[in-house]
Amino acid sequence: MRKFLAIVLLLILAVGIAQSIGKIPFGTSKTKVGRYYIDNGVEETGATNIVTSVVVNYRGFDTLGEVTVLFVAALGLGAVLALKKKKQENDELERASLVLTSGCKFLFPFILLFGSYIFIHGHLTPGGGFQGGAVIASAFLLIYLGCRERKINENGAKAIESLSGLLFVVIGLIGLAVGGYFLLNYLPKGIPNTLFSAGIIPIIYIAIGFKVGAELTGIIDNLMEAED
């Protein structure tokens, strides 16, 4: 009876929501902010990937916030798991087979290279700091799974996280000092569609790539080391 009632209530709710959503014209080209970005994005920011110009330049402040959200999540996990960290007892670990270990070691540099390519070319091709960082973190995940005796240098990861976050804020503050606007794109925009173009966008995306990579790797590291 309770289940039946729940289903009926859910159906009523679903109909109500569908009524309301059905009237919203998603995907039509009337969105005025979007139209502006498509028309003026390349000219104003120098990035040929419009998504990147929006993410890093027009709405760069959101991106700073999002990087912080990820940072806070990784930090919070670290703070909670810090009390439950396992003592260093590596002898219980069973070594992985040779095929697995060499396969992981072989793939690792290529995945790293692919990740770096994604965030360095963020202003030219699809992808960017978040995606590149996630790909890099998955390379480290592979190492964690395949070669279990390898460990990342925690202080190094911490330093990369802090420095890249700081770099983002400092680039923004320089913009405030130079032109009066936080995160102003004050570097020369260059010729669109070349690697050295779009001013501060590639620099910020590289910082994000490092930061996201280090944070996600940190999350996996914390989880793997936590007590059972």
Partner: peptide, 9 residues
């Protein structure tokens, strides 16, 4: 862009 993020994360 979103596809890449969704696939990797």
């Amino acid at each position: 862009d979103v596809a890449m993020a969704e696939a990797s994360i």
